[in-house]
Write a protein that binds this DNA or RNA. Structure first.
Length: 103
DNA sequence: TAAATGACGCATG
DNA sequence: TCATGCGCCATTT
């Protein structure tokens, strides 16, 4: 992957407002790589190595916490996001709608 | 170079 | 939303 891709992902992640969550696919889409959702996860995995990024606001398409990052659940709760009993976020109300999504 | 892996997504049922 | 199966692509072994 290119460093450009990494910074691109981080930029988008920083755009996610508090109390909202975005999916890897959505970020990958905004980054221009709709198929590279997995790469987004790889970047977020060591995003803190590049700096402090709200990687906890990034969840999978179910609104579920990352496979190896359950702490994000508690973090989102502090942001105001409501988790259901199934540990899934109410996507219909908490999924971030970026302006670029309609482009 | 090929095979396996991974913070994933989508179509169906 | 969950379970299963397939696709996607870069990194690692």
């Amino acid at each position: 992957m290119t460093d450009e891709f990494i910074y691109l992902i981080l930029e988008i992640v920083l755009e996610i407002p508090k109390g909202k969550v975005a999916t890897y696919g959505q970020i990958a889409l905004l980054a221009g790589y709709p198929k590279n959702a997995r790469l987004v996860g790889k970047v977020l995995s060591h995003a803190e190595l590049f700096g402090h990024y709200p990687c906890h606001r990034v969840v999978n398409h179910m609104g579920k916490c990352a496979t190896a990052f359950p702490e994000q659940k508690a973090l989102l709760q502090q942001e105001g996001v409501i988790f259901k009993e199934n540990n899934c976020v109410d996507m219909k109300h908490f999924q971030w709608k970026s302006k670029a999504s309609g482009n």
